[in-house]
Design a protein around this nucleic acid. Structure first.
Length: 616
RNA sequence: GGGCCCAUAGCUCAGCGGAUAGAGCACCUGACUUCUAAUCUGGCGGCCGCAGGUUCGAGUCCUGCUGGGCUCACCA
């Protein structure tokens, strides 16, 4: 493999130090960074760290290094020194030859396969209601991380774990059974997951009605009198007492719990109702996933996995990692790892959430042999995953060092946090509908594609709307809690998906117009304009950026890269003519430049799960 | 109370020890007979939460503080 520019420069600087200062050039860390926009050059050597070694002033070192490199290293054409910073100008020939090679080819940015498998889990919904904005962030993060890892050479398996059991789905089931009167998604014409979600909401409504009535009964008043705090209003008390009421007094609550009990006992009627309703939900989810353009290689269901993990407990006891209490419960003491004491099996022998997670981790390893597993889950579970990973490490599981919690912050609305009780949940399907609607309005206003068929226009509009939504969410780094303003999410100008798409469209438009041009003169092009150098330089950075983004599980890096590249393209487009450039060499070179930029934008956006249209 | 995370322009966000802290939105402004103006040009806008420390150099690293979030279940 050929050496990269940073490697070439670093080697040159080390040789220079040895030659110029008779010092050991192999030892120092060379500080190399990309040159700031306002100065000439592409790479910058910071000379401050070398002052001790060279025993000279920074400017003097920079000047001497620059002269040496210009003389000795053929890739370096020129240099300038500003306040101790040595800016290096890469030779035109190098940039030109580079451009005409890798970036114009298919698959630029991909690393060769490394033979390693990584499992990426994302989405992982509960089956009682439709997907919402929080899932959207999760899906986009998980999916694009998976794409980036694939580009970085991994064999990626995308999985989700579906929480298909428990009290929540029983609530929906009970409400449907009692109030549904045999209605189905087909009979009502609703999207099936929304249909089921509506019964979950209906359950809560009926429950609240029942609760309200109870509050006025002698029993309710008695509870208030005994447990209500001094000066607390009845309303405030009952608001906080709702969970307790559900478990101890509510008829509906008792019925829902009875249904859960029957489910666990394997009651045939309950199981068949459960399957029917869950299948509705899956049908609805599938539609949403397809609209997002995502899929899974394998699905895990908690109804299967919740019994797992017992063998891990045995293993832990054998290894002395876990211990038994007097009452029979089993726990792990993680206090020396700054985590708490964690119970794994209750005194009655039943297991809990984290136990099944232990079992599921092993199951996935058995399924795929992956030594790396990524869990895309909100940051409220940071502690849970820290505990889980620590336990697996102590169990000496072979994949324990490759576990990563892809943690992300909650999505807030301008009105504050999303709350189902207050009806401020932003539904994923509605959101898509809205951005596509907005894209349609913008498109009608422009009428740039009006001669295309209606189907073609619809497809373009869909791609534009989805890119606005996806880009808007992905451009924010995962760790940060983010503000989601619906008004801004439908923006199509500025730092947005459509802005990047538009740059791609331009690179395609010029090629359509050019027909089947002869690009061979490009190899004789000389005297690159600053805007051209800038673009080639950005293209040059793409493969390593993909690697960095993949290793840090941060798709926002790719999003910002695409934006920056698109911005440079737009600027170049404005300042330079392509098809009527001054020479055949320039025309050919710029066409190839457009091809490479379009190619890279398509690849980069593809990593984010965003499509680019040929026209817009 | 312990642990983790966050705080940068009016708003949403970049900035991962280096140069005069950057984008987008909003507001003001100029450019379409041209390879598509979903674009481009110019302007406005900052005690980088506060106080110390380390360093040739700190928005970035360390300590303390303030404000916000999450979490510390024999819940999932």
């Amino acid at each position: 493999m050929e050496k990269t520019l940073p490697e070439i420069i670093e080697a040159g600087v080390k040789a220079a130090i040895t030659d110029l200062y008779q010092a050991d050039g192999s030892s120092p860390e060379i500080t190399l960074q990309s040159t700031r926009r306002e100065f000439e050059g592409e790479f910058t050597v910071v000379t401050f760290p070398l002052t001790r070694l060279a025993r000279k002033k920074p400017d003097e070192i920079a000047e001497q290094l620059g002269a040496y490199l210009k003389e000795q290293v053929k890739e370096i054409a020129d240099y300038n020194v500003i306040k101790g910073f040595l800016n290096l100008v890469i030779a035109d020939d190098y940039w030109r030859d580079f451009l005409l090679d890798a970036p114009v080819k298919e698959g630029y940015g991909n690393s060769p396969a490394n033979g390693e498998t990584v499992v990426v889990e994302f989405c992982s919904p509960n089956t009682n209601k439709p997907l919402h904005l929080g899932h959207v962030r999760n899906i986009l993060l998980g999916w694009s991380s998976a794409q980036m890892l694939e580009a970085a050479g991994y064999d990626v398996k995308k999985v989700e774990i579906i929480n298909d059991r428990g009290i929540a789905i029983c609530k929906s089931m009970l409400a449907w059974q009692r109030f549904g009167e045999g209605a189905t998604p087909q009979s009502t014409g609703s999207k099936p997951d929304h249909f089921v979600g509506n019964y979950y909401v209906l359950f809560d409504k009926k429950f609240q009605e029942e609760y309200k009535v109870w509050q006025e009964t002698a029993e309710g008043k008695n509870v208030l009198a005994h447990l209500g705090k001094e000066g607390q209003s009845a309303e405030a008390f009952f608001k906080g007492y709702s969970k307790k009421y559900f478990n101890e007094y509510s008829v509906l609550g008792a019925d829902a719990k009875a249904m859960l009990f029957k489910w666990e006992a394997g009651d045939a009627d309950v199981r068949s109702l459960w399957e029917k309703m869950n299948n509705w939900v899956y049908e609805g989810y599938e539609e949403t996933y397809q609209k997002f353009g995502v899929y899974f290689d394998k699905r895990y269901y908690e109804s299967n996995t919740y019994v797992l993990g017992k063998d891990m407990i045995e293993l832990g006891l054998e290894k002395g990692v876990f211990a038994k209490r007097e009452d029979g419960s089993i726990f792990a003491d993680l206090t020396d790892a700054k985590l708490s004491e964690k119970t794994l099996v209750r005194a009655d022998g039943t297991s809990i959430y984290i136990t099944q997670d232990l079992g599921t981790a092993r199951l996935r390893y058995d399924d795929f042999g992956a030594k790396r597993m990524i869990y895309t889950v909100g940051d409220e579970q940071n502690h849970h995953f820290a505990t889980l990973f620590e336990l697996l490490k102590r169990l000496e599981e072979p994949y324990a060092d490759g576990l990563y919690h892809l943690s992300y912050g909650m999505v807030d609305l301008p009105s504050g946090r999303m709350k189902s009780r207050e009806g401020t949940i932003v539904d994923a399907d509605d959101l898509m509908k809205e951005v596509i609607h907005e894209a349609r309005l913008m498109s009608q206003e422009r009428a740039a594609t009006s001669e295309l068929s209606e189907e073609e226009q619809d497809e373009i509009i869909r791609q534009i709307g989805m890119s606005a939504l996806k880009f808007h969410i992905i451009k924010v780094g995962p760790q940060k809690r983010m503000m989601f303003d619906p008004k801004e999410s439908v923006d199509m100008q500025g730092q947005t998906g459509p802005y990047v798409q538009n740059a791609y469209v331009r690179t395609r438009a010029v090629w359509r117009k050019a027909g089947n041009p002869d690009v061979s003169p490009a190899k004789n092009y000389t005297g690159l304009a600053p805007a051209e150098r800038e673009l080639v330089n950005q293209l040059y950075a793409f493969p390593s950026l993909v690697k960095t983004a993949a290793e840090s599980y941060d798709p926002s890096l790719v999003a910002m890269f695409c934006y920056d590249l698109a911005k440079s393209l737009h600027k170049f487009w404005h300042d330079h003519s392509i098809l009527s450039a001054e020479s055949p060499e320039a025309i050919a070179f710029r066409l190839q430049l457009c091809k490479a930029v379009g190619n890279t934008l398509q690849k980069g956006m593809g990593l984010l799960g965003i499509e680019v249209p040929e026209r817009m």
